[in-house]
């Protein structure tokens, strides 16, 4: 009964408060799965602040980073095409060869 009352109390909390409370969210997700009898989505592991395409960035930098469109354009100016890359490799004596894993 106490459990039911506790859950009812949680229901009265504001959406924002619930959304911000990771612990509560995780608890509810777990309980939801138990009630529905189906596997619920697993919560993110502690310390893994989720997502994305760049690994190994310093976390402090990652949180304060601001897009640098000008630098992106610089990257484009340094781009090299297939023919140029092949010619440069040939000058260094590199030849492509068929290699696979057994």
């Amino acid at each position: 009964m106490k459990t039911i009352l506790s859950l009812l109390l949680l229901c009265t909390l504001s959406p924002v408060a619930l959304a911000q409370g990771g612990g509560i969210s995780d608890l509810l997700r777990s309980v939801t799965g138990a009630i529905s009898g189906k596997e619920s989505a697993a919560p993110a592991q502690k310390g893994e602040t989720a997502v994305l395409g760049v690994r190994g960035m310093d976390e402090g930098d990652a949180k304060t980073t601001a897009p640098a469109a000008g630098d992106s354009r610089l990257l484009e100016s340094w781009a090299v095409g297939r023919k140029e890359a092949e010619a440069a490799a040939a000058r260094r004596g590199l030849t492509a060869r068929p290699v696979t894993y057994e």
Binding site: D61, A62, T65, A66, P67, A68, A69, D71, L75, W78
Partner: peptide, 22 residues
């Protein structure tokens, strides 16, 4: 990429960058 370069600006050396791309 745009966000990453905000924290890690490219080295301003066209010769080095061009060679790296090759």
């Amino acid at each position: 990429v745009a966000a990453t370069l905000g924290s890690y600006p490219p080295i301003r050396d066209s010769g080095l960058q061009h060679r790296l791309n090759q």
